[in-house]
């Protein structure tokens, strides 16, 4: 395996559709809950320890070779908002296209055949990591990082934040990212014995509610 593949997978420029999504940041900006660097930092910390942790657990389990279709169900159970389910599957479909070009594998082909309309993005991310020869912990890192890098990039555009301050938000979250990724990978190890119930199921009700409101808005810059 080549660890450097993780840099490719986690690169914000990896062409998998993420640039059109804000991870709930646009809804938070609209509601003025995120309005400056400090509130962005708190938003990201909250998202990382809830949606980010859940995504990291699913990704780690998929990277460990656990049945992606069962993980799909586990992702649905952890995603009560229909808007977020739809956004997650759409992003999963787009990631699948990019991953099959970057790291072709029979497992990715099989998932694409089983879920032509898309599988949940963290599940695809984990399987992409696996196809790239990466470990479950690597996959957890990619998912956890993405849960905060997307909102930060979107907020730089939405609020015209100083990009250096915004990047510092991500840098200061490094210890939290380590913690979340390690916890997610550890939970994924317990899946063979305990089933998908072993995976994190932390919820962020406000992200769910505002995601539903966001898709109803007639004018928005980001799809989610």
């Amino acid at each position: 395996m080549h660890r450097a593949a993780l840099l490719v997978l986690a690169d914000g420029r990896f062409p998998a559709g993420g640039h059109a999504h804000s991870g709930g940041a646009e809804a938070a900006v609209t509601a003025r809950r995120v309005r400056d660097v400090a509130s962005l930092r708190e938003f990201c910390r909250g998202r990382l320890h809830t949606a980010g942790l859940v995504a990291a657990g699913l990704a780690a389990a998929a990277a460990a070779g656990y049945d992606p279709l069962l993980l799909e169900e586990a992702a649905d159970a952890r995603t009560p908002s229909p808007a977020l389910r739809q956004a997650g599957r759409r992003l999963g479909r787009q990631l699948l296209r990019a991953a099959r070009a970057a790291w072709p594998s029979p497992e990715l082909d099989a998932l694409a055949a089983a879920r032509p309309r898309g599988a949940h993005q963290p599940v695809v991310l984990g399987l992409a990591a696996r196809s790239a020869g990466l470990t479950p912990l690597d996959a957890a890192y990619a998912a956890a990082y993405e849960s905060v890098s997307g909102p930060v990039t979107a907020t730089v555009r939405l609020l015209r934040l100083d990009p250096f301050d915004a990047t510092a938000v991500l840098a200061r979250l490094a210890a939290d990212l380590d913690h979340v990724a390690a916890g997610a990978a550890e939970a994924a190890q317990r899946v063979p014995a305990d089933g998908v119930a072993a995976l994190p199921a932390a919820s962020a009700p406000l992200l769910d509610i505002t995601a539903e409101q966001h898709v109803m808005r007639p004018a928005r810059l980001f799809a989610s």
């Binding site: 999504h21 296209r97 799809a223």
Partner: peptide
């Protein structure tokens, strides 16, 4: 397109 119309037609054409 997420605030960046040229990204959606050039750098990341997924959608």
């Amino acid at each position: 397109t997420g605030a960046c119309p040229h990204t959606a037609i050039r750098d990341d054409i997924s959608a």
